[in-house]
């Protein structure tokens, strides 16, 4: 029988708000567009990582969501770097940045391909940014699917624990396209590795969904 897994922390960013474990921890006083909102949130949490400003919008969203969880519970402090994994999904891949990049090459008379935009034209670069900042060396995979396929993610994450490929996993969905954005990331680990299980939630599809819509 496989070991019980629990969700120890989760973070959601949507609609100008940041919530950690269901509690609102940041909200813009007035409604702002994503670039202004994410910059204000970054500054609010006093994260000192200048490379943040060079990231594309998708990476900024994923990075900040992960950072909120990691600030609360840094898995690299408790597990080997190669035992921490990141599995993320969305439906629009890096399309938002792909479009930005295409603007730099569409006009033959103004043809200046931007290298710094080009490097973000893959969604797994976002995972790379989280891994680089936090020295996470474990399995990392990005899936593209039309809907937030919780059952699939549950099976995949369960499998990497069962096959001993990870001891701790950050997983979830980071979606951004134009003005629309929403992210939810969860930190899951074995119940035996939890010191305080009072606030933890059993890792199962129903609970993943419940935390997502809460």
């Amino acid at each position: 029988m496989s070991e019980q897994l629990i969700i120890s922390n989760y973070c959601k960013i949507a609609d100008n708000t940041v919530s950690l474990n269901g509690k609102l921890i940041f909200k813009c006083d007035i409604e702002k567009k994503f670039p202004e909102f994410i910059k204000e949130a970054y500054k609010n949490f006093q994260i000192n990582y200048p490379k943040f400003f060079k990231m594309d919008s998708l990476s900024k969203l994923g990075f900040l969501t992960a950072e909120m969880i990691i600030k609360k519970e840094n898995p690299v402090g408790n597990f080997k770097n190669e035992d921490v994994s990141i599995i993320i999904t969305n439906s629009s891949s890096s399309l938002d940045t792909d479009i930005e990049y295409s603007k730099t090459i569409n006009d033959a008379d103004n043809y200046f391909p931007s290298p710094s935009v080009f490097v973000y034209t893959l969604p797994n670069i976002m995972i790379g940014e989280i891994c680089i900042k936090n020295k996470i060396n474990g399995e990392n995979t990005f899936f593209i699917s039309e809907k937030f396929d919780i059952d699939f993610l549950y099976k995949y994450v369960s499998n990497i624990f069962e096959t001993n490929k990870t001891q701790c996993c950050i997983f979830g969905r980071v979606e951004l396209m134009g003005e629309k954005y929403e992210s939810v990331l969860y930190l899951v680990k074995k119940a035996k590795d939890c010191i305080n299980t009072n606030e933890s939630v059993i890792f199962e599809p129903e609970n993943i969904k419940k935390l997502y819509i809460s």
Binding site: F112, P113, S114, P115, S116, V119
Partner: peptide, 13 residues
């Protein structure tokens, strides 16, 4: 290195 490429583009543009 990506910044170097971006500066190269800046000079050209």
């Amino acid at each position: 290195s990506i910044d170097a490429l971006e500066l190269t583009v800046l000079l050209e543009k």
